[in-house]
């Protein structure tokens, strides 16, 4: 096997159709290079998990081909499973077993026994910060602890490729950040290839070397986060009139600088600027000239949500101002 293919993932025309259902995955082509973190971003129901299930051999594709670690996912399932680790969407744990017992079971399933099993379990428990909680039943674990144990279980056999299906959904900020650090370390220090699905823009932005955006089973955009955002280039201006009656006036001024867009705060008017270097000062002058009083004015740098919007005409579910990189400029409720 070529060395370069040992840690890579490739798919060509991958399709999965369910009985009496839609095409969950509709002809996906992708390539993930060794040691790369690939973020698979999309809203709920876009086909992310179905893709992961096919790539991890849990679900045969209806059409198309895929190789993981150089092995065909259809004809060489056992070899693929030996090479990969996976933490699927549900932190599938037995509430009545302890963390250590989970590791013991998982290592046994991978044929790791004796001293090696003990050492590996201890090492992983330390790495995910569960040494103290190792002998407690999982039903007493927090969501973050369960996710960390889930990650440890996926790593027991030192996989070359790691699949993480929405690993941080439902986690608090601290747990999410800790998981990101560990995933980043795995890729950078151990050369593990990571295929990460997420519906969080920030997660894909921070963690992924490259991002594939999926919608309705198709990849609609792919590239590094910077490249994708650069394609959009233009910022968005969001303004909130102090007097709701002046809404029309604000719209007419702002529309001179770009096209109105949605998905921002209640009562606000947002316009995606047509010029890559939108001039805030010029906008402020125009608003002032129009006699408009604003309570708030912000300029948003392009985000992956803007990329998604540009490609699909819709915003990603759950994407909002709190997940975006904002250049915020609060104004006094006076004349701009």
């Amino acid at each position: 096997m070529e060395a370069s293919r040992e840690n890579s993932i490739e798919a060509h025309g991958l399709v999965r159709e369910f009985k009496k259902g839609p095409r969950a995955v509709d002809g996906i082509d992708l390539r993930v290079d060794p040691g790369e973190i690939y973020g698979f971003l999309g809203p709920n129901g876009a086909g992310k998990s179905t893709t992961v299930h096919m790539l991890t051999t849990l679900l045969p594709p209806t059409a198309g081909t895929a190789t993981v670690a150089g092995y065909d996912v259809v004809t060489e399932g056992p070899k693929v499973r030996k090479a990969i680790g996976a933490a699927l969407q549900e932190a599938a744990l037995d509430p009545f077993l302890t963390g250590r017992e989970h590791l013991r079971l998982q290592t046994t399933m991978h044929g790791i026994t004796g001293e090696e099993r003990r050492e590996r379990s201890d090492e992983l428990l330390t790495r995910v910060g569960l040494t103290e909680a190792a002998d407690r039943k999982v039903k007493g674990y927090s969501g973050g602890m369960k996710r960390r144990l889930d990650l440890a279980l996926a790593l027991v056999h030192r996989p070359r490729i790691l699949f993480l299906d929405e690993p941080t959904t439902g986690l608090d900020v601290q747990s999410r950040t800790a998981l990101w650090v560990e995933v980043g370390r795995l890729a950078k220090e151990e050369g593990v290839t990571v295929f990460l699905t997420t519906q969080y823009l920030e997660e894909a932005d921070v963690l992924a070397d490259r991002v594939g955006i999926i919608d309705h089973g198709r990849i609609v955009a792919e590239g590094t986060p910077e490249k994708l955002k650069a394609e959009i280039a233009c910022s968005t201006v969001e303004a909130v009139p102090a007097d709701p009656d002046q809404r029309g006036a604000v719209v007419s001024v702002l529309e001179r600088f770009g096209e109105q867009t949605t998905g921002y705060g209640p009562g606000s008017i947002a316009v995606q600027l047509t010029s890559p270097n939108g001039n805030l000062a010029e906008i402020v002058r125009a608003l002032d000239a129009g006699g408009v009083v604003l309570s708030q004015l912000q300029i948003h740098e392009p985000t992956l949500d803007d990329v998604f919007l540009a490609k699909t005409g819709r915003h990603l579910e759950g994407s909002g101002g709190d997940e975006e990189e904002d250049v915020e400029q609060e104004l006094e409720p006076a004349r701009a």
Binding site: P78, R81, A86, L93
Partner: peptide, 11 residues
């Protein structure tokens, strides 16, 4: 809960 899937992902 997906526990069976976890086991199915082992050899």
């Amino acid at each position: 809960t997906g526990f069976l899937n976890r086991l199915a992902l082992t050899p």
